[in-house]
């Protein structure tokens, strides 16, 4: 990092910023990491994978559930015209969510509302831990 001490340089402010970035980088870093951003959560009945995918209809998305992973694939289109500013990412993207847990593959559902994709992966009833009683012979 280059420190310059000219008159336009707000030294204390910059210093605080540095500290701020150091102590709470998670939000900004998370946004920069990979596209699209993913949230993974679970409750008692299912796992949820959510992703921000604005501007894509559900049929333009390719969701693949393989033996061990969920693959989200697609392409964001570009608009035609003379660009003055382009910040929205465009092009192909792919994210792989590795599933190390058994899920009920037949009951997986995906919805896309307001550009937020939600994939619900229900936990399978047969895979729930069971007690095995040991009979003494």
């Amino acid at each position: 990092m280059v420190l310059d001490f000219n008159t336009l340089y707000t030294f204390p402010g910059r210093f605080e910023r540095l500290f701020e970035d150091f102590f709470k980088p998670q939000y900004a870093e998370g946004r920069r990491m990979a596209y699209p951003p993913l949230n993974v959560s679970e409750d008692e009945t299912a796992y949820y994978v959510r992703s921000e995918l604005p501007g894509l209809p559900l049929d333009a998305l390719d969701l693949t559930l393989t033996e061990k992973s969920l693959v989200i694939k697609g392409e964001r289109p570009t608009e035609q015209g003379k660009y003055y500013r382009q910040e929205r990412p465009a092009g192909f993207f792919q994210r792989v969510v590795v599933l190390n847990v058994p899920v009920d593959r037949e009951a997986v559902r995906a919805t896309l509302v307001d550009g937020v994709l939600t994939v619900v992966l229900p936990k399978c009833a047969q895979c729930a831990p069971r007690k095995i009683s040991i009979d003494v012979a």
């Binding site: 921000e52 608009e79 015209g81 003379k82 660009y83 500013r85 382009q86 910040e87 929205r88």
Partner: peptide, 22 residues
């Protein structure tokens, strides 16, 4: 929000990614 601003024959277009906003 990530924003695109572009110009076409019939005027300017602004696109904003605001996922999750109703």
């Amino acid at each position: 929000p990530a924003t695109d601003i572009l110009e076409r024959e019939d005027g300017f277009y602004v696109y904003m990614d605001i996922p999750g906003v109703r």
